[in-house]
């Protein structure tokens, strides 16, 4: 598969060649048509890309050996950054919450608010956004560079399926490792939140743990895992695709990388909203 499969511009008769009274209307309709076609074209290319991935799943001998390396890149190597982010989020959330409580509110509310914030929202979302920057950008740059240096064409020449070779390991790694990272981030956030308020404020360990357990149902953890799985898969697919369709030159790689980070971040936020919309009612204790 080459870049020519996804042409971005079609040839049209120039607007200037039409009679003047018709030009404004033609220009308007052409713009509308181009935007509409562009939207559907983008969707179509991505669906086509997904179909290619489905097809590539049938070649585990190509992608399975490479998956472990990607899992290490995405999961293990991202743990320090994700852990630092989670620790600060948990600590700051807990510390700020203590000083928002007015008299009459139990101190266990701190544990409850930290758990709800970190488990339901901050843990999965911020881990995914951090990974979109760290892992997604790297993914797009790697695949994009291979595209512009024609290594992908070389793979095709050698009868390797570039999707199975490049995209599948990253997708599987994103799908599995982002939930793992999210679990560890949540745990780190809750632990550091507790340590902070126990050491620095009048909140006691009993208050914090009581709040952590208050109205807890296991579905809250499943909810976070569902989100993390969706986010990880999105990061891998979007960033791989943007790298795969990179246009020529170093500038093209940079543009694709920036575009991948922006799109994956926006998609993560949209998916976050959608999951909340559909699954949040099930979170009621």
């Amino acid at each position: 598969m080459s870049a020519s499969v996804y042409p971005r511009h079609g040839g049209h008769r120039p607007t200037d060649s039409f009679p003047i009274p018709q030009r404004a209307a033609i220009k308007f309709f052409r713009t509308v048509a181009q935007v509409t076609i562009g939207i559907f074209l983008e969707i179509g290319w991505r669906v086509h890309f997904l179909r290619e991935i489905m097809r590539a799943m049938s070649e585990p001998r190509t992608w399975l050996p490479l998956t472990i390396k990607q899992m290490k890149n995405i999961g293990v190597d991202s743990l320090p950054l994700a852990g630092i982010v989670a620790a600060f989020i948990g600590a700051v959330t807990a510390y700020q919450t203590v000083y928002q409580l007015f008299p009459g509110v139990q101190l266990s509310a701190v544990g409850w608010i930290v758990r709800q914030s970190v488990v339901l929202e901050l843990g999965p979302l911020l881990t995914a956004l951090v990974l979109a920057g760290r892992v997604g950008a790297r993914m797009t740059a790697e695949i994009g560079t291979m595209r512009v240096t024609e290594q992908i064409d070389a793979l095709e020449t050698l009868a390797y399926d570039p999707i199975a070779y490049l995209v599948m390991p990253r997708t599987i790694a994103g799908l599995t490792m982002v939930p793992m990272l999210t679990i560890l981030s949540i745990a780190i956030g809750i632990v550091f939140g507790g340590l902070t308020v126990i050491v620095a404020t009048k909140v006691r360990m009993t208050d914090y743990t009581t709040g952590l357990r208050l109205t807890f149902i296991p579905f809250q953890v499943y909810y976070a895992l569902i989100k993390a799985t969706l986010f990880g898969t999105s990061i891998a697919l979007i960033c791989s695709y943007e790298g795969y369709v990179t246009e020529t030159g170093a500038e093209g790689v940079g543009r694709s990388t920036a575009r991948a980070v922006v799109i994956s971040s926006v998609v993560i936020l949209l998916l976050d909203a959608l999951t909340a919309l559909y699954l949040a009612p099930a979170l009621a204790p």
Partner: peptide, 27 residues
């Protein structure tokens, strides 16, 4: 790499299961 990834996944799963049980069973 395989060992490191295995350890990572195992730790994450254990933390997730144990943490969920700890919260759900109140210790």
């Amino acid at each position: 790499d395989e060992v490191i990834v295995g350890v990572f996944v195992t730790v994450a799963i254990v933390v997730g299961v144990v943490g969920t049980l700890w919260l759900a069973r109140r210790g």
